[in-house]
Design a protein around this nucleic acid. Structure first.
Lengths: 196, 196
DNA sequence: TCTGGAAGTTACAGACCGGTAACACCCTAG
DNA sequence: CTAGGGTGTTACCGGTCTGTAACTTCCAGA
């Protein structure tokens, strides 16, 4: 009922969008292809004409998620053109806002928790996409004039990733409440040591 | 094959231990009760004589995990009696060691990612156990003479939780390599501000 | 030795899963 | 108008899942 993204568009797009939403809410193994196609207002045969398997659909959903995240980064650049430090702070604020938005963590991390087969196709793209995001955050930190850019970027990554799972386990009143405070504090602290 | 904890002990214990191991390795929805009982050298009927459902078995496994974690804390106290700061550093070292031990993250976090039904019995105990662990870490920080004990404890929690999911997504060569460095640095930094 | 309960065995129910086959439909491009 | 490709429909396959019933076997304690 709550899953009903059935706007009229091409079936493939509806399936992809619906699957993204349902995987996010109910987990990957918690959603069957029948449920997806029904919520997408189509049927199983059409799904299998566009995706060769559920695994491929999963991969496409992860890629679509990453594309959306990438668009967010572009929005920061558009909002604060050239001001990398402002973009970094915007990233922190956005991350914090998404933390409290819904109690589900990062789709890639959740997928990695569910899909334990070491050679599952999704594991490859998760690693690939996470590494790309890491690279992007490192670059942003470096361009913001921070000396130990990798260290700050990785620390911010860990904090955010941790905050996401914390929200998922104990809710938004737990340790995740400290995310913004710590992230901002770290940025300031690393800025101070920038000359080094 | 790799799952074969069939030492001769009472069936209930074997089932619990085997289930813990298999849930950890393959995820909860990735393991059926048949597979558990077979690996435990028993059968499904015996499982259902000791646990009223798979969900209850899951809950018991989570509690057993928490008990093992609690024993680890006791070991710190035994190793460094009264020296809370040494215990805190031991906690960091132990956490780091476990990070690289296996590529699977925290069982509770993984369970929370898999079991999305908001009223699933496991979600209650996950929250309860995580909150207990948080309390314990806060107490340890406070007893170690750290002023902003809650802030440090929560930050360390987020870092560890994040490191665990990072290992699960990009492997042990990713941002998680910075965990010890950041954790130790934070402890030193908070110690310095202890007088405040 | 006898007995009672725990454990093992086999079979099954009912539901759901991913994936496929065969066929009818509809809408648009020519 | 017509041809053809994308789509919808129905039914099905083989497998797996949680959970149960009915029965046998085993073993420890009295």
């Amino acid at each position: 009922m709550t899953d009903g993204i059935v706007e009229r568009s091409r079936p493939r797009d509806r399936i992809l969008e619906t699957a993204r939403d349902m995987f996010h809410k109910h987990g990957i193994k918690g959603v069957g292809v029948d449920a997806i196609t029904e919520a997408a207002g189509t049927n199983k045969m059409t799904l299998y004409r566009h995706f060769e398997s559920k695994d491929e659909l999963i991969v496409e959903c992860l890629r679509a998620n990453a594309a959306k995240a990438g668009a967010m980064w572009d929005a920061f650049e558009a909002e604060f053109p050239g001001d990398k430090l402002a973009q970094l702070h915007a990233w922190v604020r956005k991350a914090a806002a998404m933390l409290n938005a819904d109690g589900r963590g990062c789709d890639m991390a959740n997928a990695a928790a569910e899909l334990t087969e070491p050679d599952h196709p999704a594991r490859l793209v998760i690693k690939e996409l996470k590494e790309a995001q890491r690279e992007r955050l490192v670059t942003l930190c470096r361009d913001a004039g921070i000396g130990q850019a990798e260290l700050l970027a990785d620390t911010l990554s860990l904090l955010l990733e941790g905050a996401r799972v914390s929200v998922q386990t104990v809710g938004s009143e737990g340790p995740s409440t400290q995310f913004v405070r710590m992230a901002e504090g770290l940025i300031v602290s690393f800025r101070g040591a920038a000359a080094g």
